[in-house]
Simulated assay, not measured.
Amino acid sequence: MNPENRLQALSEFLKAKRSKLTPQMAGFPVGTRRRTPGLRREEVAQMAGVSTTWYTWLEQGRDIKVSTSVLDAISNALQLSIDEKKYLYALALEEGPHQEFSQKEEIQISPSLTKILHELRHCPTIITDRRCFIVGWNQAAANIFLDFEQIPAVHRNLIQLLFSRKEFRSLAVNWVHFVRGFIAIFRTYYGQYVADQWYKKFIEEMEESYPEFHQLWNEGEVSSAPEIQIEFRHAKAGKMIFNLTSLQIQGPNDLRLSVYTPVDNTGTELKVKRLIENS
């Protein structure tokens, strides 16, 4: 396997996490002038109990040997979450699948999943694959977001749609907060399938086309299933508030169920019902 993509991703991630830690957060004295935000490399190395040279090589993306004990120490020094730690391990130890997946790969939604989508009739729900392509949705999702049936399957990538379609940009009251959660999920997949060249090409195309994606991607956020509350301003229904829950579907295709549950006592569920009835 060509390690270039993996090591580059590791380098970018470590730099992003280091830049977000202030000296105060790490227990270092305040007052020293710093040319760049965050901790210095030597400070991270000191906390992790490794040499500055070795940590510098790791952060530069050099192909060096690492151990789980050292990665644990670095994770603690950078104050990584559980999901971020898993991402670090996947990149540093080459964990996860090494194969690429065909871009022509077709996902068939099982009858049981189809029934689940139907039963969640008042909860907008979408199903995405490991590349965040939308492969299933219910009527509520079509009414709240957009009619995915009108979008060719090859262009039905959720990450791209969040940036390219005005329907999403105008819908979410806090669009950046809304998008950040999905980018964090996408980065989790990237760490698992970094050998798949599709990811590198897609990220490069998104960064070239959407400066906002470049900025959010460089934040280095990682989350396998962020649970957030999101407020929408729907063109027909007005204010709607949902809790977003992401569920991983066990199986060979790494499918994910994203369910928007109407928040009680906000009138959101009634508005969803009316939208469906009038569609």
Rank of each mutant, 00 (worst) to 15 (best):
S223A: 15
Q215P: 00
A195N: 12
G220S: 09
R165A: 11
Y199K: 06
R169K: 14
W198N: 06
A141H: 02
V154M: 11
I185Y: 14
F148N: 05
A141G: 01
G136D: 07
Q197E: 15
Q197T: 14
F163E: 07
A172W: 05
T128F: 03
Y210E: 02
F213K: 07
D129F: 07
A184T: 09
E212I: 05
L216K: 03
C123K: 04
L146N: 01
L120G: 00
R165V: 07
E219S: 04
Q139K: 11
T114V: 01
V173E: 13
S170K: 14
R169I: 14
T128K: 12
N218G: 13
N138K: 08
I127P: 04
T114I: 10
T128M: 14
I151K: 10
H122P: 00
A140D: 03
G220D: 09
Y210T: 01
H155P: 00
V135E: 05
L162K: 04
T125L: 12
W137E: 08
C132P: 00
F182G: 05
I116S: 08
A140F: 03
E212D: 13
I203P: 06
W137N: 07
W217D: 04
H155T: 02
A184I: 11
G136I: 11
W198Y: 14
H214A: 15
P124Y: 11
K166N: 12
Y190S: 08
R121N: 09
F178D: 07
V135Q: 06
S224W: 04
K200C: 04
R165L: 08
A140T: 02
E219M: 15
S223N: 15
E149H: 12
S164M: 11
T125A: 14
E219F: 06
E212W: 01
V135L: 04
T125P: 05
I127H: 06
F148K: 09
G191I: 10
